[in-house]
Amino acid sequence: MLPVGYYIALSAILFTLGALGVLIRRNSIVIFMSIELMLNAGNLAFVAFARAYQSLSGQIFVFFIMAVAAAEVAVGLALIVAIFQTKRSIDVDQLNTMQG
């Protein structure tokens, strides 16, 4: 069994890459994918600590995070589709006005 610190370090690296993706990409779908990457990095840390403390609560939290992520993706992608129907673009640089 590897030390849990390895998994935590990997989780930190993946989270950083996700945060970087939100900052450098301009396509809102790819930004959304980066948010999923960050959620996934958090899940990895949860599972690693659940293993370290021999407690199943961490895994239950991951289960709930996955349910929330699924709900978030459904609503978020519906929002992106609605924005595309009005603005004909999903580039975040073009979405600088709230009104139609």
Binding site: L2, P3, V4
Partner: peptide, 12 residues
């Protein structure tokens, strides 16, 4: 960070 012991076979 706590050292990990072997988990039971039904863990997870």
């Amino acid at each position: 960070i706590p050292a990990t012991q072997a988990a039971g076979s039904d863990f997870g």
